[in-house]
Design a protein around this nucleic acid. Structure first.
Lengths: 395, 395
DNA sequence: ACGACTTAATTCACGAGTTAGAAAAAGCCA
DNA sequence: TGGCTTTTTCTAACTCGTGAATTAAGTCGT
């Protein structure tokens, strides 16, 4: 635990960060309002804002009339000050998107891949980067950074361990950095999606939250005290591989009774098929949707879905009891399908498994952004850094 | 999420805190060493230390000869600058202890109680406080604060919800504050014990850790980024009531399949007795020890203990996967008994349930301090505050 | 015993920061 | 135009950490 000094420079950076973050998050604000909410003196706000405007990070955005006095000038982050890129590395495709600072999409490129071989992924990300830069017409010096989301465990230095991709200690960050001058930030896909939901979706306003993702696999993003919690070596959040049925179904991670083996879409379908029933759809997502359709009427499908909600609720209750979040957000493609139908049931079931006290303090919601938010979330990584550094650019 | 300004005062407080914490935690240090490890300039260290010495928080502690130059003067926190009190409220007794700042015990008072009725507990804590002050001869103005540990959920304001004591929303902090001028800090007993282990026991040096306590009940203290993690309303850490066997044994919390229902001492003994076997001992702790003795030879006792280790390992693995700590420390009276016999087995079993990556990063240890550390940990609460505030006293 | 050398701690002037309060700017209303 | 209100900027005062120079306090060789 390295304790570190504070200098007068840190103070200024911190205050710049406070102001910039305020402007970014809570839309156009006047200097007055900034002064109120940060409790910085009007003098300091003015001083800092002048500097931020001179550097181009912040711009004035019209004024608002007051009751008989000088009108307030509104401030906002200059959308076109810099740009950010978000990349999503999936099992079947690489998607690269370019955003302005207000997170408007300016360009998107998708590239399907057959086998997620590291070298090829690197190639596609770099090509996608060039491509979005070209089509958007943005000068590449103006790109603040590239956030890359991968579904697997990502070390602090961008080393990726992803069993689903068959990657073991792939230094993705370094490999990408060799192909471009733009800063690269690699993170877990669950985390980036969680980050997107926290900023722009169902997580807004919460400081202690969990974004739980249920797709073919199961994961979670932990947010503690307003920022993402990653653990010692940033592999926290492997909620899908917590044991929920000791000695139960075997999971692809090698252990038995993992939550994922009960609520992951693949395993839900397996559980259904093991009853002897069949589904028309071949595609996993279509099959899952079909199962949910069948489940409206009593029968084996309904029973399976029922059980799934129960297991999921127990998994949620574990989060509630252990982490005591103020909000849990359910996402992932399967999670969304389940959530839109069974959210009230789910909430109720969580109440049955969780302790009264922490249960009373949590609200359970469904993601608002859909699956495309993975790249969006990745793109927020450089923005987050910009805000944290008070608008100072990485040298 | 209130973002707040930083002023030049915060800077000074922060630097005082950095220095004071360094001196407190890493024994006598010279100004030089402080300068090195905090990266503050020698000038600032000198300046801050002068101030701290003038206020009496820090004192010089002899000097150490150097190789041909002026000897370094060592600095340490003045043990007798202030004193702190720790209280443990258990089901059968109230213990109050008085410490100096080096955490030497100067006085102890125990008081057995039959029924943990709030008003009585308050009375006993306050009487204990007077008593330790009297026997130690410490002037009560010199007492920095009283940390009170209760086994239950403790809100931020010292409101206690403890099912085992039958307390529902008891404003213990406020009740105590009415009886004394000394600042009162109430916290969960698992947290205070965890705090003690983190400072003085098996948790030293770790920044992301979990202290897991197994006694009659089961709980945990979460430490994230060097400080205790409490969640939204400080009820985080209810590890004992996470589901580990979906639909399994019913737990006293009302849910089914909680970890506590499998590894809590009471339930371990129940599981044994359900096999039809009996134990000579009546007392729970003696019975548990007897069970462990019987388990050295193959038979039903060994099977039960075997299963217990398995469940416990799964519970540990859940922590490893979800929280990615660098260390897990096993404590509690039953945990200690299990740990001293089965630690290697336990570690191995955790490896079977956890993901490879996070498992490789965690070390699993046993508590070093024993059960008396609950009051010690409670007493660290005011010390923690002193260090955090850079030696400034609560006004 | 003395002086050269080494290392530790303090002093001091300076630049960078925030703040309170005064002054200026910018609008509204009569 | 002039009075009024509200927002923003300017100014002087004060705090703090830093680097360079200085002082303090030893060791060691001769």
């Amino acid at each position: 635990m390295e304790v570190r000094r504070t200098t007068v420079r840190d103070m200024r950076r911190s205050n710049r960060s406070v102001i910039l973050t305020g402007i970014y998050r809570d839309g156009p604000l006047s200097r007055q309002e900034l002064s109120m909410r940060t409790s910085l003196s009007p003098a300091s706000v003015s001083n800092l804002v002048t500097e931020l405007i001179a550097e181009g990070v912040v711009e004035e955005a019209g004024s608002v009339e007051s009751e008989g006095g000088r009108p307030r000038v509104l401030l906002r982050v200059a959308r076109e000050f810099r740009y950010v890129v978000g990349a999503e590395v999936g099992e079947t495709r690489v998607r690269v998107e370019l955003f302005d600072l207000a997170m408007n999409v300016l360009a998107t490129v998708d590239h399907s891949i057959d086998a997620p071989e590291p070298a090829m992924v690197v190639k596609h990300v770099l090509e996608g980067l060039s491509s979005v830069v070209a089509t958007s017409g943005v000068r590449s010096e103006l790109i603040l950074g590239v956030g890359v989301a991968v579904f697997g465990i990502v070390d602090a230095d961008g080393v990726v361990h992803a069993q689903t991709l068959g990657w073991d200690a792939v230094p993705l960050g370094q490999m990408l950095a060799e192909g471009t001058d733009i800063p690269i930030l690699v993170d877990n896909g669950a985390n980036t999606l969680g980050q997107a939901e926290m900023w722009f979706g169902a997580g807004r306003g919460a400081t202690d939250a969990v974004v739980a993702l249920v797709g073919s696999g199961v994961g979670a993003a932990l947010v503690a005290g307003g920022s993402s919690y990653r653990g010692t070596r940033s592999s926290a959040g492997e909620w899908g591989h917590t044991t929920i049925v000791y000695g139960g179904r075997s999971c692809r991670c090698g252990a038995a009774g993992c939550l994922e083996a009960y609520v992951g879409a693949e395993d839900v379908l397996n559980r259904y098929r093991e009853t002897g029933a069949t589904l028309k759809a071949i595609d996993e997502e279509a099959a899952f949707a079909e199962l949910l359709e069948l489940a409206v009427a009593p029968g084996p499908a309904a029973a399976i879905v029922d059980d799934t909600i129960g297991y999921l609720a127990a998994g949620f209750a574990n989060l509630v009891n252990l982490v005591n979040p103020e909000r849990i957000v359910l996402g992932g493609w399967a999670g969304l399908l389940l959530g839109e139908r069974y959210l009230p049931r789910l909430r109720e079931e969580v109440g049955r498994h969780a302790l009264r006290q922490p249960y009373a303090q949590v609200s359970i919601e469904v993601c608002e952004l859909g699956r495309d938010a993975v790249a969006l979330g990745a793109a927020t990584l450089p923005v987050l850094r910009l805000l944290r550094d008070g608008g100072a650019l990485p040298s």
